[in-house]
Design a protein around this nucleic acid. Sequence first.
DNA 1: GAAAAAACTTTACGCGTGACAAGATTTATT
DNA 2: AATAAATCTTGTCACGCGTAAAGTTTTTTC
Lengths: 343, 343
Amino acid sequence: MNQPKIRNMEAFAAACGISRPTISKYFHDATSVRKSTRERIEAAIEEYDYRPNIFAIDQNRRKTKNIGIVVPYLADPVFGEIARNLERRCLEAGFRATLLSAHGEQELEIEAFDRLKALRPAGVLLAPLGRQSNLDALSQFCDEVPTVLFDRNIPGVGQAFVGSDNESFLSQSTEYLARTGEAPCFFEMKHPLNPNSIARRRSYQASMKALGLEPMTVQIDGEGWNLEEIGYEGAMQVLQNGSLPTNTVLCSNDRLAIGFLAACHQKGLRVGRHSGCAMRVAGHDDHPFSRFTCPPLTTVGHDYDVVSNYGVECLFNLIEKGGRFESRTETKFSARLVLRDSA
Amino acid sequence: MNQPKIRNMEAFAAACGISRPTISKYFHDATSVRKSTRERIEAAIEEYDYRPNIFAIDQNRRKTKNIGIVVPYLADPVFGEIARNLERRCLEAGFRATLLSAHGEQELEIEAFDRLKALRPAGVLLAPLGRQSNLDALSQFCDEVPTVLFDRNIPGVGQAFVGSDNESFLSQSTEYLARTGEAPCFFEMKHPLNPNSIARRRSYQASMKALGLEPMTVQIDGEGWNLEEIGYEGAMQVLQNGSLPTNTVLCSNDRLAIGFLAACHQKGLRVGRHSGCAMRVAGHDDHPFSRFTCPPLTTVGHDYDVVSNYGVECLFNLIEKGGRFESRTETKFSARLVLRDSA
DNA sequence: GAAAAAACTTTACGCGTGACAAGATTTATT
DNA sequence: AATAAATCTTGTCACGCGTAAAGTTTTTTC
């Protein structure tokens, strides 16, 4: 342990009394060297606490053991949770994960692309910004690096897409709400950043029409990623001026719904599906905290575990096939209604 | 734009008609080359869309422009938000930030250390796991890389510490609650992972004694990072068996408090500081969502912006001084009571 | 217009590793 | 024990860039 510090593989090889290429082979695949050699190397690792420089390794390897993960906004708990799941899966599969966030900015997403190109990853799991993405940079990146898109689809970009079936989400929630009370209006941002939002609005409208009902959308102002605040402010406005067409509100996502709940509380409106409640509020995504809102939020989502697992598997397939699929596939996981007290 | 792809600086230099060392100089400092040269290079960058490989750059530079940020658990919104702020500051200062999460696991924290060593960062902002950290690996890392600890202090480790003054936090909240109603009990995990928790408990006890009151702590079971759930389950238990010694609960942190609020709602207990409320609940940290709980959470915190700004400044100082301070400083930001409706 | 200064080019080496080929040594097979 | 097979060593090049020294060209200065 207290040996002089080893600076590189050459010095480590000398300290082992084994040649550098053999050491290199060992680190690439420990079973590729003779057992006695392996034991000598492992003893020396213990003694000198040496580990190869990860970035130097990747610079020259044909196939790296790196996977890039890019999310649009890491401070959003939904992406925090998804990213954590994805990273864990990658590690379990013997890959190293590099997590990058665009922080909601086009420039930073492009930066992330550059970084990943330099890292030469075996593959990338990418949730693009969407409307804010630079499409040229995005599609060029996907041409150079084997990429699976997730969460947010951009048609034709990437080798595959894995995400949510917005239609299933919306038909489940719309139908449930319409069946158990007043038909819901759809509460969303006027200019949503998330491509799913638009699909969700359309699906809501289609679901309502299929039920023989007239769609009612409530579109609120606001820009950026402070969705709870945007939801809160928007809700305060519509509650104040009484422009809500129904007592049942279906929010485009859970973060808006959390803001809506806060506004209802502020206004003294009791939310819930039980008697004595003035309103029903539901969301989408099954946000990590939606279990702990007051009342707990009725929402629609899918198991993070299952979806991240599938996304990672899809990427591993892609990597095995050399980075190209014959045709682009879109896998959309359908919804599971999560019935809680809010609606 | 549609030129043949440039693979490296050599090829780019050839395409420019300028020597590689000059190109290298340009990327290191654009003003270090003649104006006419700069323009030629910039025109070529436009044309070929070339950018140097970030990792190859750092491998050999004396001083890199890299800053490492390590957090214990990125899916925790508090750390998500802090990390976002820190990254932004680093970028503004012309550095590149590399964000790593230990995901609550000792092994992954050690992995993060290895990665950062390989990256040869100019400096590192590190929020250690705390109880779960491997102290040997941690202090060895801090010896090798200029490091500023933040959020969680480990005495003697790192060149400086920047974080919260837990005593100020607790004295403010305890005093306020005692003054405006029943004295608070302190609600916390029996075996908290966060070093701040222990300091907070002590400060609570000291504050109560200073007020001539007997401290009352409620310690709940639970392991891991699902703090809302742990808080919820713990609250359900104490509410069920009536073991709460007072109607005012001061939670060790906001995430536990969010769980507590959910339990109160479940039990039909109205929370707030107004008449007609059965309980008061307060937290600590000013969690990004504490504004949107029902009722909005009274808590104690400091401006994320101010603290991250100071932490980054501190690290820049350290970098300028060559990576060593003469003596280790501990900067603790004092609290600001955030009065909302819950207490 | 000559001298001085600045900017550039050429050449060469370094960083820490992967990869490959040729030969030497060890182990397994018969 | 002889042979084949597996494993290892030695040597060399590659990756994409930083850096330094020495020589050349361009620009500035007076």
